[in-house]
Computed example of a mutant assay.
Amino acid sequence: MARPARFITFEGIDGSGKSTQARRLADSLRRAGHDVVLTREPGGSPGAEDIRRLVLEGDPDRWSAETELLLFTAARRDHLEKTIQPALAADKIVICDRFADSTRVYQGITRGRLRAKVDQLHSLMIGCEPDLTVILDMDPAIGLARAKGRGGTEERFEDFGEDMQVRMRAGFLALVDEFPQRCRVVDAMRPPDTIAADIAALIEGC
């Protein structure tokens, strides 16, 4: 396999299979001989993991959308400094389960209509975009049922309900028109092996 994109992100609504497919892609690229860092957001560095617990656990109304935006941006900055930039500088491939597009959709569109502020903070504090973003698309009701069925403690956003998932899906799909050079939609309503094969074909085409 020729060398794929260096910074690859996975996006989509809750329960769409991002973590599974990111892990499968990382395993596939490692088998092909690539040096891969698999990471996630919020999180991916010690400081960002601390913030993850703040934003993903507890009552849905724990934070306003404005406070969430600041917390997610702080976590992303630490993740960028401690994990993503060092890996890219070492010529590794970085695969990330969520990145800035999630903030564009969650806080920018569905939670607080803060897109202008999201973009301003991103430009000031992050300043980079992935080479390729895979958007896993699925029915919001099915995705929410999957996410709630995991039985973990990180369900704060799932607790906002199906209406928010519907709006998030529309937000993620709109990113394809906004960032056509890097965003690709993959149908996540199919078997995991079929989805993984389509993603591998996307990577080979980069």
Rank of each mutant, 00 (worst) to 15 (best):
M168Y: 04
A75C: 12
P180E: 13
D78M: 09
P4W: 00
A100D: 07
A141I: 12
P86R: 01
E178P: 11
R113W: 11
F72Q: 01
I135V: 15
F172T: 05
D97G: 06
W63P: 12
A147W: 05
D97P: 08
R3V: 13
V36H: 04
R150I: 09
A116T: 15
A89I: 12
L54N: 09
C96D: 02
G112D: 11
R169F: 05
E178A: 14
T39R: 02
D119V: 07
D198I: 03
P130Y: 01
C206G: 12
M168G: 08
V105A: 06
G58V: 13
C206A: 12
H79R: 05
A145I: 09
G143H: 03
A116F: 01
S28G: 10
T110Y: 02
G205P: 12
I95A: 03
D91K: 08
C183D: 15
K82R: 15
V176S: 10
M189P: 07
F157D: 04
C128A: 05
C183W: 00
T133N: 10
A87V: 13
R104D: 05
I135A: 02
A196C: 14
A100M: 06
T73A: 01
R53H: 13
F72G: 00
I195V: 15
T9W: 00
R167H: 12
S64V: 06
G12F: 00
G17T: 03
D50I: 14
T67P: 10
D119H: 07
G127W: 01
L175A: 03
S16I: 04
L38W: 05
S28P: 07
I84C: 01
I195C: 04
A200V: 07
R40C: 07
D50P: 10
T133G: 12
E155P: 09
C206H: 06
G58L: 08
H79D: 06
K92F: 03
L56I: 14
M168L: 15
A174Q: 10
K82D: 14
M1W: 09
L80E: 00
L69D: 01
V185G: 11
G205T: 13
M125H: 08
R6C: 13
L175H: 04
G43A: 02
G149E: 10
R111P: 08
E66H: 14
L173S: 09
S16V: 06
I51N: 00
L173W: 02
A5H: 04
A74G: 11
E155D: 15
P46F: 01
T39I: 04
D101E: 10
A174F: 02
